[in-house]
Amino acid sequence: MTTILVVDDEFLITDLLAAELEDQGYRVLQAHHGRKALEILAQERPALIVTDFMMPLMNGLEMAQAIKARPEYRDLPIVLLSGAQGAIARRHPEIFAAVYDKPVELWRLSEVIRTLIGPPLGPREAD
């Protein structure tokens, strides 16, 4: 099954994104800060990460830099959703596959996710 990891300290946003992406057929994992996301990555292999910027313990940029530093994740697309820090993130095109300013329109986000990783695959197809 195609898995997406959603990282945001605001549970309203992770819940909303998870509900939407699950409706589309993706499997969704949630983390509430960058460190938690790295812990999940030690066990899971998502096809894509959607992350917030401003989070406790490790922000979205720090997390993305840590992930991209590892060769096995070099091709893992990371999409950033941010309010005020969009400009900072856009200075790092090598790290972020896409950057959206909050509040983001869900259809727009779904579209870019589909472009980056394609439609969700069922459990058998993913094997």
Partner: peptide, 14 residues
């Protein structure tokens, strides 16, 4: 200043 000098975080989930 948002995200540079002032950091907003949610501790609700924690």
């Amino acid at each position: 200043q948002v995200g540079s000098r002032i950091t907003y975080v949610s501790a609700f989930q924690t």
